[in-house]
Nucleic acid binder design. Structure first.
Lengths: 271, 271
DNA sequence: ACTTGTGAATAATTTCACAGCA
DNA sequence: TGCTGTGAAATTATTCACAAGT
C-alpha cells in the first residue's frame, strides 16, 4: 500500500525567454498584468480541478485545504495560496464548496468554452491521441487530424478522417481549431508549427523533440519523453553514488567516459 | 520562419513534498548532497544534450554558449550557469567542445548505462510507447510490457510479448528494469505503481491522471495531457480578456512580450 | 577580441505562521 | 474551535555584469 504522501506531484516550467529582442530600453517591467497568477500556480490549478472533480463525483460537497491538498499531492499552504490568486471562495472554519470551486477554477482556466484540437502527425502517438476522443474531462474535442502520407488521407482515425496538411488553413478555420498538437517527426515539426500558426492557431502542444520558434503571441507547451526519462536517469545515478561517494574523499572523477557520443532525444512519430 | 528566439523550451521540476511524514526530528538538512544541481537545471541539461547531439551530427566541433543557448531555446547566461553546475568544460574565448560536453552531460545524467524500461498498460498510448523501441537516441530500451487483458498476454507489441502484471516481480528482476512507465487507466495506476515499487523499480513515469503515492526513495515524473491542455486554455482565455480589459492605461504598446512561462505536465491514456 | 565562469542582484516560488471570520 | 486568506520570511531560480583566461 505504500502510505507515505511523499512526493508525487510534478511541475514543469517553461521560462519563456524574456525580452529576446534588442529591447527598446529598460522597460521598467511595468505593464503589470492585473491579476497575475503565477505560472506555477496555473499548472496546479488544473491538478486541483481533477481532484475536485473526483470528489464531486463521489458526492463530496465540501473540502478543507488540507484534504484537497493531499488529494492533489501538494501541501495545504501552497494550495491555499494558489486558490487565493483566483479569489476567496472558501469559508473559514469550514472549507471550500466543491461545486463552487470547480466552477471558479474552470472559469480561470478558460474551460467554460470548448477548445477544438487538431492533431498533426498520425503515427503511433497521433493515433493514440486521436483516440482520446474528447480529451479527459472533456472540453478538448479532437476535431481534425493531419498528415502527409497519401495512404492516410481520408482514412478515419478515432472517427475523424485524416486531412492533408495542405488543408490546414481551410480546416483550422472551418472547425475553429484552438489548439494544435504536433506529433510529427522532429524534422517536420517546425514546418508544421509554422503552418498552424499561419492558420491562426495560438496554442501548440509539441511532442516532437525540437525547440519550436514561434511568434510572441503563440503559446507552446512541450512534452518530451526523452527528457523525462533522462531526468529520471539523473536521479537514479545521483542516488547510486550517493551511497558510495561516502567513502573516499578524493579522486571522484576517474569515471569519465571516453565514449564519443550518443544521442538522445525525445519522442518521435511517423507521419 | 518565425525568427524570434522567443520562448520554446521547457523544464520540468519535481518538487517532491518535503518532510510530509512526521519525521524523526528536524534533520538539520544535513546529508548535504555535494554537487547539488538545481532540478530546473537538470531538465535543461537534457535539452542541451539534444541540441549538442544535433550539432555533433552536423559535424560541428565547437559551440559558444550563445549559439547553443539559441538552439536550446534559453538565454546564454542561464545556459552557462547550468553548465557551470557540472563543471568547467569550456574554453574562454572559444566555446565548448561539442564532444566533450556531450560526454559530460551524459555522465551527469547517468546515461553511460542503459535503463531498461517497462511499460504497463498496453492501450493506445502503451502501444505507441512500446513502438519507440529503444527510445530516442537509444539508452532507454523498452524490454517489458504488462497488462491484465488475457487477450493481450503473450501477444508481441513492438517486438516484445506482453506479460501479465502478476509477473511484474519476476520480469522486473530478470530484465533489470530501471524505469516503469504507467499507461493504465487512472483507476489502476496506484496499484500498478505499488507493484512496480515492490518489485524494486525506483523511477516511474506516470501518464495516468492520478497523483501517485510512493515512498521517498522512488522518483515519479508525471505527464498529463489534460493539464497541458488546460494550461494552454488558460493562456488563450487570459489573452482574450487582456485585449478587452486593457482599455485604459497608456497605449497598448503592443510590444509586450507574450509572456511565456508555463509549467507542467500531463497526459492520459486508456488501455 | 572573444567567450567562459561566477559572485552578486533580482525575481519567482514556496513556506511560515497567524490574524480574522464562521 | 477550525480553517481560510495572506503578509512576511525563506528558499530557489534567473539574470546581470564583469573579472579572468585564451
Amino acid at each position: 500500500m505504500v502510505a507515505e504522501p511523499g512526493q508525487g506531484d510534478e511541475v514543469v516550467t517553461t521560462p519563456a525567454e524574456p525580452p529576446a529582442v534588442p529591447h527598446p530600453a529598460d522597460e521598467p517591467a511595468v505593464r503589470e498584468r492585473a491579476r497575475a497568477i503565477p505560472e506555477a500556480a496555473v499548472a496546479r490549478l488544473a491538478i486541483y480541478l481533477r481532484a475536485l472533480t473526483e470528489l464531486s463525483e463521489q458526492g463530496v460537497g465540501t473540502v478543507s485545504s488540507e484534504e484537497l491538498s493531499i488529494a492533489a499531492g501538494v501541501n495545504s499552504a501552497k494550495l491555499r495560496k494558489d486558490l487565493s490568486y483566483i479569489g476567496s471562495y472558501g469559508t473559514r472554519g469550514v472549507g471550500y464548496d466543491v461545486g463552487v470551486l470547480i466552477g471558479q477554477v474552470e472559469r480561470i482556466l478558460g474551460l467554460t468554452r470548448n477548445h477544438s484540437v487538431a492533431v498533426v502527425g498520425i503515427g503511433n502517438l497521433g493515433h493514440a491521441l486521436a483516440n482520446y476522443n474528447g480529451f479527459p474531462g472533456r472540453g478538448f474535442p479532437v476535431t481534425a487530424l493531419f498528415d502527409v502520407d497519401p495512404d492516410l488521407i481520408g482514412v478515419p482515425v478515432g472517427g475523424i478522417p485524416v486531412d492533408h496538411i495542405d488543408d490546414i488553413p481551410q480546416v483550422v478555420a472551418d472547425r475553429d481549431i484552438t489548439i494544435g498538437v504536433i506529433a510529427t517527426p522532429p524534422s517536420a515539426a517546425q514546418e508544421v508549427c509554422d503552418r498552424l500558426v499561419s492558420a491562426g492557431v495560438q496554442c501548440i502542444l509539441n511532442f516532437a523533440p525540437v525547440v519550436l520558434q514561434v511568434p510572441d503571441h503563440v503559446e507552446v507547451r512541450k512534452v518530451d519523453l526523452a527528457v523525462e526519462m533522462q531526468i529520471l536517469s539523473f536521479h537514479v545515478a545521483r542516488r547510486a553514488d550517493e551511497g558510495s561517494t561516502e567513502s573516499t574523499a578524493a579522486g571522484p572523477d576517474g569515471a569519465v567516459n571516453g565514449t564519443g557520443m550518443s544521442e538522445v532525444d525525445g519522442m518521435v512519430m511517423r507521419p
